[in-house]
Design a binder for these strands. Structure first.
Lengths: 163, 163
DNA sequence: TATTGTTATACTCTATAACTATA
DNA sequence: TATAGTTATAGAGTATAACAATA
């Protein structure tokens, strides 16, 4: 169990890390928004899968996933074929064009990080990767729990915007 | 200098950490979007400051900062007073109401992280905080450089969406 | 002429709800 | 009746450009 102030600091760092994410997004080709890159990366790592599984891996709602998938499918980077086991479902997989794009994305990500993190050791990067993965895991279970809302009471200072 | 595959993995983890950020955002009071929380937190930590300095700390464009600041000012959480040294500028500072809200936000952040990270040691959390801060620093210098665009050539596979 | 801040506009990403088709 | 996926709508966040006021 960590100290109160450490949690505050972690919350602050998580809030601020968006700047790094945005910078990483800016180096992508104009035709490929970050969300598309995420879809392609997961299909590359996990192979052919259904919409619902992809949504689970992306940790976003399936309606959003559907739009991202439509975007990459329209550009020919993935194929959607009927699932022989369930006619409601579709199986997604990368096309050769999609693999080409992924190679390009990988190159850009790597070059960018190598430039920005030139003074990081292999151990540093590995440690950060490990801790981020663990952080996601620690949060992962909680999406199925009841929505956490113990403090939205009328007496909360948040409820007195005019005060 | 880290390995190629490590950079790819870091890019993936950064892309996926958005799920944690969203979950942290969901526990805020409805009247206080994450961007407002960010503004209040920085004003608390750094004290009275100008718009331009806040935008720099948030690492977002001043036009965006202006909207966020207007939001928290309308709700009475901050004050904007004229800068006696420069009539174009305004000085921002927290109000007592803003401090009340911040205490509430801190409580929610801490409770949420304590719940999700109950099996993390103090050292683990400290390490993650340290690495995230260092990551931001490593990226921070680069915003002033020339926009990085060596690969958006017509021959890129990203430019052949019909292929 | 340059700088500080605001506003208008557009784009990306996400969630909720309503809907279709199939299990 | 329940589930897989799509679409419509709304809202938060950000960037660019045009603008006003002041340095």
């Amino acid at each position: 169990m960590a100290a109160h102030s450490q949690y505050e600091e972690l919350a602050r760092q998580l809030s601020a890390i968006g700047a790094v994410k945005r910078e990483m997004g800016r180096i992508l080709p104009q035709c490929c928004p970050p969300a598309s890159a995420g879809v392609l990366t997961l299909l590359d790592r996990h192979g052919e899968m259904r919409m619902s599984q992809l949504a689970e891996l992306l940790a976003i709602d399936m309606s959003v996933t559907s739009r991202h998938v439509a975007h990459v499918a329209e550009r020919g980077w993935i194929e959607r074929r009927p699932d022989p086991a369930d006619k409601r479902s579709r199986l997604l997989r990368l096309t050769p064009s999609g693999r080409e794009l992924l190679a390009e994305l990988s190159e850009r990500y790597t070059q960018t990080l190598a430039r920005y993190l030139h003074d990081w050791t292999d151990t540093d990067v590995g440690h950060l990767v490990e801790l981020l993965a663990r952080l996601r895991t620690s949060f992962g279970d909680c999406r199925t729990r009841a929505p956490y809302d113990p403090l939205d009471s009328p007496t909360s200072p948040a409820r007195t915007p005019t005060g």
